[in-house]
């Protein structure tokens, strides 16, 4: 199982799409590692800097609704993975992006809008810890807050197996 949690990158906007996460022109790369420098390259959001220290040190993303909409490209998940970001917490996800995350043994967790508000209001430096057994997230910034999340048994098995290929190769 991958490790989850750490310093969070807050992306306070809905509908962040796959072209913003990894532009199509980099889809000609044939290795996941080669995608690393291009993470969130086209995202325009306040003072966000795709080349900045904040992103470099982040291990989780906290964002709004419909994260990862658009293309089916799993490159949008891999570019997070190769930058050591193994989890995204959002109000909601686009279906394919969410499934790609669990298929790679990564966590895409949904929290209600007011919980996302609470995390965002904890300040600029938020640390996320995750207990997958108890299905609880703790976000620590100026203060700390704990939230319960839903993780269905199949998604949990994918996390434990390390991904869908590992799961399916044994079972089918």
């Amino acid at each position: 199982m991958k490790t989850f949690g750490g310093p969070a990158l807050i992306l306070d906007r809905s509908d962040i799409n796959t072209d913003e996460i990894i532009p199509a022109k980099y889809l000609t790369e044939n290795s996941k590692e080669a995608l690393k420098p291009y993470i969130l390259e086209d995202l325009k959001l306040g003072s966000f800097d795709p080349k900045g220290e904040k992103l470099k040190n982040s291990r989780a993303i906290v964002t709004r609704a419909n994260f990862g909409c658009g293309s089916s490209r799993e490159h949008a998940v891999w570019v997070l993975e190769v930058n050591d970001i193994n989890m995204v917490i959002a109000e909601s996800f686009a279906r394919i992006f969410r499934q790609n995350m669990f298929n790679c043994g990564m966590l895409a967790l949904e929290l209600p809008a007011q919980d996302i508000d609470t995390i965002i209001n904890l300040g600029n430096d938020v640390e996320i810890t995750v207990d997958t057994e108890q299905a609880k997230i703790t976000a620590t910034g100026d203060k700390a807050a704990t939230f319960s999340f839903a993780l269905n048994p199949f998604d949990r098995e994918l996390i434990l197996a390390g991904g869908w290929l590992e799961y399916a190769d044994k079972k089918y």
């Binding site: 089916s72 490209r73 799993e74 998940v77 394919i96 499934q99 790609n100 298929n103 790679c104 991904g163 869908w164 290929l165 399916a168 190769d169």
Partner: peptide, 9 residues
Amino acid sequence: GVGTTDLEV
């Protein structure tokens, strides 16, 4: 539409 891991499986 699916991602590459779904396609692979």
